[in-house]
Design a protein around this nucleic acid. Structure first.
Lengths: 208, 208, 208, 208
DNA sequence: TATGAATGAGGCTTCATTCAT
DNA sequence: AATGAATGAAGCCTCATTCAT
């Protein structure tokens, strides 16, 4: 009878939103943008209408996931790149942390894969903002790379190419080592991270 | 007057099939399995029924593309790995040829990306055969890697991990450098291939 | 304000299901399996999607009708054959009730005609179950026939042949007397039931 | 080089037509009006175009089959009813011959079943003519029935009802005993004809 | 706030028929 | 006379979204 207080309502809202976002992440992990609103609602134990009560449409929900992936990525950058260590060490920490974070929250990995692999323009309300965010993710890494080159500890290749190659390598290998059901079968244990880091930083060739 | 000869008909069929396959490859490049039969027909300047005249359904057409990708890949393997050169040189040739082929026929690249990235089981009539084919693509490369390790010119990491890392790296970097419209914008000129090969084989670190 | 209660929703669902089933029966009556989901939706004043909301596909809807026909037939068997009367009398009641039921619910008649006349295998999810159900419909009648033969009131022909002939006769005559638009034009009044029963039983009855 | 003579052409035409008609009958037996022109062409070893060269569309081909069924039925009537025997004997001969003919040429039986069972108006170019033909099939039998009633050897029921019941019985039982794959499984041996005739006539016959 | 019933646009596929050779 | 390549209308089904309660 007595209506809920504002605080109660807000608490309900927060819980629901978190519940929906969490479930959506799971479904996005499996299906990407082919995730179905019905799936999400059912898996979250909610009615379809409820999902629409909090997100006006599928793309809004997608944008929420995108935002999440962005924030997590920024956190990793903050934690690994803004230290006092040598550039190469920082870059290495970054790579390791990135891969580990993808292993732990595959949705974030999938989101980046999706961004890379999408041919259709990414369906966000503000594409320019997305562009800016991606640059915010790139810039600090690019800086470290430049510092490493200047310091002479990283090979002197065009930094941007280097960044792209690094990012591509991470995404590509993660794709193979993280995903279940791909053509290489079940993913390996996490020891692959060390191997990948080793190869990335030392190359395949054995310099005796 | 008299109906077309068998040869005339076959010629028509061959032309159409090639036309449809070609168009389908283009559309697959853009949309993956979300390619629409209507798109293909329209882009080929044909009626939808005509496409179905040659392929009973979307998946048959998909399998054709898959087959094509497989054959091209086998060709590259034959041309680069079955020579008398040193293992490392052969592997390098293979990597270079692979990237170049992906640049020239992006559909083949997309097909592999699709195979890797698919969560749903790949919709082929004979999954076991697909598995076998993938192994046929992997084995020769794996052999060269083993030979390189034995010869001491490649780092002594588990060969299968090495293969996966290599393949992941190629796919991942190609994804960034080949695709238009992804978050990194228009693809670079093909000079990136040299950089990627350099990094793959020497690593990011500058070993003074 | 608050969403519908479970009971309200169930009531809606029940009403819709009954409405769709009823309409589907009408359309099946006209077209058999060539009934179109669009027809059903339109005739029921619903969107096509709504029909699919309740039945996943055409065959599920068909199976519902089949189930209904089976249940009605079992009811008739229960009501007419499981009494204390003499075998011949029971069989007569059964025949009369069967024909009357077909007159009143032609869909049920059409369903049997369809089952008999189908060359393609009947598209049910569980063919074995259908087989079993058909036997459940046959057995009690077969029993009465056997009892009648033993009692000497029915002619001593192979009971199964007798059943088939009886069933065929009922279906065949009903087909002529019930259906509109067939080559014999509009159906007769229901007095034909008496005539058919008379003819049938002056055949089956053994006039010692 | 030298063009064919008129006679040669006519011979070719006749052969083709017969070939197509024969094949169409086979396919109609299996699928009724759902027979596909492609099936017919393929089964006849002809191109699709060829079928259309001789029959402008599916319905023309259907009408040909209908005409054939009609003629065969008239033949039976001529052979069995227009004799000097007693009415009941003639009727019996007719029934026997009819069932036998259906056993031997099931397509004819299927055609009648189709005519009876059709809800859509029969798709012929001249419905009135079809009506007339059906009456031509009915009349002689009706006459014999009337004669039998007058002679006191058949039960005194409305002759038209009697005809319909007789016809329904024949169609209905034939449907069960002739067709493969119906719910009663494989058809019986032909001994059923005797049983059916026995049952029918112990019903129709007036046992004074 | 919460729900699920209702909907229709959109994509796949079939098959009778046309038509150029 | 003979053919089969080409076509599109029509039917099935999915799923994002709306809306009454």
């Amino acid at each position: 009878m007595s209506p809920r207080t504002k605080e109660q309502n807000q608490a309900i809202r927060d819980r629901r939103i978190s519940q929906i976002r969490h479930t959506a992440a799971e479904v996005f992990l499996e299906k990407g943008l082919r995730m179905e609103m019905g799936d999400i609602a059912e898996k979250a134990g909610l009615g379809r209408g409820t999902v629409y009560h909090y997100y006006n449409n599928k793309l809004e929900l997608f944008e929420e996931l995108l935002r999440e992936a962005f924030q997590r990525s920024m956190n990793i950058i903050r934690e690994t790149l803004q230290t006092e260590e040598a550039p190469e060490a920082r870059l290495m920490n970054y790579v390791r942390a990135k891969l580990r974070s993808w292993v732990q929250e595959p949705m974030i990995f999938i989101m980046f894969l999706f961004l890379l692999q999408s041919t259709d323009p990414i369906p966000v309300s503000n594409p320019a903002e997305l562009q800016r965010e991606m640059e915010q993710l790139m810039e600090p890494v690019l800086d470290v790379i430049k510092q490493g080159i200047t310091a002479g500890t990283l090979v002197a290749i065009n930094p941007e190419t280097m960044y792209k190659t690094l990012f591509g390598t991470l995404i590509g290998t993660a794709n193979i080592f993280i995903r279940k059901n791909n053509i290489f079968g079940a993913p390996d244990q996490d020891t692959w991270i060390n191997d990948v880091v080793y190869i990335v930083f030392n190359g395949f060739r054995n310099d005796v």
